[in-house]
């Protein structure tokens, strides 16, 4: 059975991390599994844990009056559920639900924030990884906004 450290090192987000940093983070993580349809994050709830997906698929959505939960994107292996955990007020801004049975590493947000504060090298690496992740999501969102596939004939 693989250790949390090994699993962290296999995830795309932390694949380039030095083993010592993975070891340091490992104490904040544990394995979790969600069944299809199970709620993973709820908008407005405390951002206490985020999830590194190992397998499966989850939705990200937001509640819109009269429309219910609007699906924004889906996340799969090597992606991350929850990016609001590093920033005050430490609350989720979107909801997430497992679409398929989903296995992930749950990371205790307060634990990792504390370790990032105490170990600037770890903090820099973690925030660099999340900055890249958020750049990718921003880029994807901008492409979605362009409505590239629409028929834009005059």
């Amino acid at each position: 059975m693989k250790s949390i450290r090994d699993l962290l090192g296999e995830h795309l987000l932390f694949r380039d991390f030095h083993p010592d940093l993975l070891e340091l983070m490992a104490g904040c993580g544990h394995n979790v599994h969600f069944e299809a349809g199970e709620q993973i994050l709820t908008e407005g709830a405390p951002a206490s844990e985020f999830y590194l997906i190992r397998s499966g698929k989850a939705s990200v959505g937001v509640t819109v009056p009269n429309r219910g939960t609007v699906l924004i994107e889906t996340l799969g292996p090597d992606e991350v559920i929850g990016v609001s955990w590093p920033f005050p007020p430490y609350r989720w801004e979107f909801s997430s639900t497992a679409i398929d049975p989903t296995s992930a590493i749950a990371m205790d947000a307060e634990c990792l924030r504390s370790k990032c504060d105490q170990e600037p090298v770890l903090g820099y690496q973690v925030f660099k990884s999340f900055a890249r992740l958020m750049r990718d999501r921003l880029q994807a969102t901008r492409l979605q906004l362009l409505d590239l596939y629409g028929n834009h004939a005059g």
Binding site: K57, S59, T69, L71, T74, P77, D78, A140, L143, Q144
Partner: peptide
């Protein structure tokens, strides 16, 4: 993958570049 989908859609949602890593 599709850029936008109703809640009943069971497939992927997001731009096609997201599929590259998988």
């Amino acid at each position: 993958t599709v850029d936008a989908a109703p809640p009943s859609w069971r497939g992927d949602v997001g731009v096609v570049t997201k599929l590259l890593s998988r």
